[in-house]
Design a binder for these strands. Structure first.
Length: 740
DNA sequence: GTTCTAGAAC
DNA sequence: GTTCTAGAAC
């Protein structure tokens, strides 16, 4: 037997007589996977082998391929196998699941414990097999959990057991310990914490296929639910559809019965996006211009949507925008079965209007918050708190012209009642001086942004179609007498997939600063900033870069292409900014190959000032030069900052993490990346919320005062990564001071 | 970006 | 009670 395999002492020589099991453990470091294995292997009546990637390479960390080979060999040898590795995403699991066969059941046991608990266990442990302990463990666990993708039955598992605490882990241990050589465990998902159980019960009832697992099943057993079903096989032009007079079709009795019993709305086979007219209500955009743009954009996208439909919805029968769009669409010969207008409330199109739309658009506000009035308030109210949370998890704000696709949580009333699976938030241009970011009647910019908004919206819809398959016909699964649960699950899994792929923004990049938030106050500032959403306070550096003559007292150095100033709120003993003087260069994401020379000059100037401080002020200082991935202030600026971080202005986590996580992009790396890739990597703003760690010894600290107290005395060497490639600048005599 | 402050954490 | 954070307002 290979060194990586720990045979169960209770059944070392045993060979499995009945079906063998491959049990994949899924969980972060510190979740208790190895402990679970040990406990089962100690007491089980079956012969088990543990395949652990941390020790598979002659007692050291090995590869997935080695694990696969060992697992296969153990299974062939008649053993049951635990795959003891994190297996946190589907890709990591796929190859192992393929080892399943009629004689080998593949199970997953998910140790879905709180991240904090896993982190604290990982940080504390010593002698870990994979050497994941102490400081680096926290970062690793955090990173892994961010990408976590829980297993689903349709990956090929016959059984998945979710454990959320130690008691549930003990249940899992008992379950496997109790298994005799010929015992089987019930198939399905057990202990999953989501809201889908209720729906499943409804669906199962509707399908008359309730079939509770038996035997040693934990009583909370459930199976995954399909998404709300599109259960009608015909279109639903039932009530107030405006326009071309296509006849209405009433829902069949069976569908209505099913609908009533399951609380799931009937709908058509045809994927449909219902959207309100963007910007024409509260944002007071001219209706004639808006209707031109709607028809233009619908015409552009309709052919790309396959069999999917677009429906412009408005509450009012006398809606001017609907009439205009209807007339213009007819003149343009847009296929009225693919695009039509509809009078109704967008949050009850199915139950009150008989029009089933799996996707609805929301005329959102920039904060992506509920409230206000009109469609935004209606959708957030109808969808419940889950939509707010799901939205929040994906983005905190929108800029005019952008859209954000949000899969609607399955517990949402809008999902359950109306069959809405996705909401696409869209922010259009504002022409109302009483609302933020008013364009002051600038219809050049307004039309551009409105076009962008519809492009973002329709592309968002296309991304949903692409992901879920244009051709899905869940209605057949519901109706068909031979409907098989696995098919339903597979479909549901596809429909329920939650992924960042849903994020879609038409704007070329995410803007770099929050917009002015004040209702009723138009944002002043230059044209470009307004389009990008820079608010007045965030334009201070831009103003200096463009008008240095007005800021003579603040400027330390002025050249043709750069300006050096002191940071107004220094976060360290020495903290300068080197501003680029180029127009249209707001932040790192604007930087491309043509700026390489400028980047090098900025670096050179920054380095010169660091060396000046080292020679003339304090030779013990250490400097770092770099950019914030997403700056708060407009105009590309290089930070030259000493690493003492001794400043009263350093007050919060964001301050610290903006200089001490990957959010801070070292100038040398930026130059290298732009040189080789044409652009610099932008790192996630989520890094700003990470735990506080000393930049030298990497120790974690609970709050800013404690961290500052620590860094005041920490003399540990800087991490190796910072010492490489001239990322840190020491006094000139140091061998480490290098130029890129 | 900062300031202010409610309320969570201690 | 005080300290600290995080979100809103600017």
């Amino acid at each position: 037997m290979d060194m990586d395999l720990d045979d169960s002492s209770a059944a070392t020589s045993g060979v499995q007589k009945g079906k063998r099991l491959l049990v994949m453990l899924v969980g972060a470091p510190g979740s208790g996977k190895s402990t679970l294995c040990e406990n089962v292997m100690r007491a089980s009546k079956r012969p088990w082998v543990r395949v652990c990637q941390d020790i598979i390479g002659n007692g050291k960390s090995g590869t997935k391929a080695q694990c696969l080979k060992s697992a296969l060999s153990a299974l062939d040898g008649g053993k049951n196998v635990f795959i003891d590795r994190c297996n946190l995403d589907k890709e990591q699991r796929t190859e192992f699941v393929k080892l399943g066969s009629p004689q080998i059941d593949v199970h997953a046991v998910v140790l879905d414990l709180p991240a904090q608990l896993c982190i604290s266990r990982s940080v504390k442990r010593i002698g870990h097999e994979g050497n994941l302990q102490g400081g680096k463990a926290a970062a690793v666990v955090n990173r892994m959990l961010q990408k976590k993708e829980l297993p689903k039955l349709n990956e090929g598992f016959s059984r998945i057991m979710f454990c959320h605490n130690d008691a549930e882990i003990q249940d899992a241990i008992n379950t496997y310990n109790a298994l005799g050589p010929f015992d089987d465990l019930p198939r399905g998902c057990f202990g999953e914490r989501n809201h889908e159980t209720k729906i499943q019960a409804g669906i199962m009832k509707f399908m008359k296929k309730i079939d509770a697992p038996s035997g040693t099943v934990p009583k909370e057993s459930s199976v995954q639910s399909p998404a709300p079903h599109q259960s009608s096989d015909r279109t639903n032009h039932k009530f107030d559809r405006q326009g071309d007079g296509i006849g209405s079709t009433n829902l069949s009795e069976k569908q209505e019965k099913g609908n009533k019993e399951t609380s799931i709305c009937p709908s058509s086979d045809i994927p449909t996006l219902a959207f309100p007219s963007i910007s024409t209500a509260d944002f007071q955009f001219d209706h004639d211009k808006a209707s031109d743009i709607i028809v233009e954009k619908v015409g552009e996208f309709i052919s790309k949507l396959g069999n999917a439909r677009l429906v412009l919805v408005d509450l009012s029968h006398g809606s001017k925008i609907l009439s205009l769009v209807k007339a213009k669409a007819a003149r343009k010969n847009i296929d009225s079965s693919k695009f039509f207008t509809f009078v109704g409330n967008i949050v009850n199109l199915s139950t009150k209007g008989g029009l089933c739309c799996s996707v609805i658009a929301n005329a959102a506000n920039w904060r992506l918050k509920s409230g206000g009035g009109g469609v935004n308030a209606a959708i957030f109210n109808a969808a419940g708190a889950d939509l707010e949370a799901a939205t929040r998890a994906r983005a905190k704000m929108l800029h005019p012209g952008q859209a954000l696709v949000v899969p609607l949580p399955s517990a949402s009333p809008l999902y359950l009642r109306e069959g809405v699976t996705h909401v696409i938030h869209v922010l259009g241009p504002n022409m109302n001086p009483q609302r933020p970011n008013c364009l002051d009647n600038d219809y050049n910019e307004g039309c551009k942004l409105l076009r962008q908004a519809y492009t973002s919206l329709f592309e968002g819809f296309m991304s949903i179609l692409k992901m879920h398959g244009n051709e899905l016909k869940p209605s057949q699964m519901l109706r068909g007498s031979d409907c098989h649960l696995d098919n339903c699950k597979q479909d549901s899994d596809q429909k329920n997939k939650r992924s960042d792929e849903y994020l879609l923004e038409n704007s070329k990049k995410s803007r770099c600063s929050p917009v002015d938030t004040r209702d009723g106050e138009a944002v002043k500032g230059n044209e470009r900033s307004r389009a990008k959403g820079w608010s007045s306070w965030s334009q201070a550096l831009y103003q200096i870069a463009m008008h240095p003559e007005r800021h003579k007292g603040d400027i330390l150095e002025l050249t043709e292409d750069v300006i050096v100033i002191k940071d107004c709120y220094p976060k360290a003993c020495k903290h300068l900014l080197v501003l680029a003087r180029a127009e249209h260069l707001d932040c790192l994401s604007d930087v491309h190959e043509e700026h390489l020379e400028l980047l090098r000059r900025m670096h050179g100037v920054g380095l010169k000032w660091a060396e000046k401080f080292l020679q003339e002020d304090d030779p013990s200082l250490v400097f770092r030069l770099g950019y914030h991935s997403v700056p708060s202030m407009q105009q590309l600026h290089l930070h030259v900052i000493s690493q003492d971080f001794n400043s009263t202005h350093l007050k919060n986590k964001k301050h610290w993490n903006s200089f001490n996580t990957a959010f801070f992009r070292d100038s040398v790396d930026v130059i290298e990346e732009v040189s080789s890739n044409g652009e610099a990597g932008i790192h996630d703003e989520g890094l700003l919320a990470m735990e506080l760690r000393c930049h030298r010894c990497r120790s974690a600290h609970p709050n800013i005062p404690r961290l500052k107290w620590h860094i005041g005395s920490c003399k540990a060497a800087f991490p190796v990564a910072l010492l490489e490639n001239g990322r840190l600048v020491f006094r000139p005599t140091s061998a480490m001071a290098t130029k890129p």
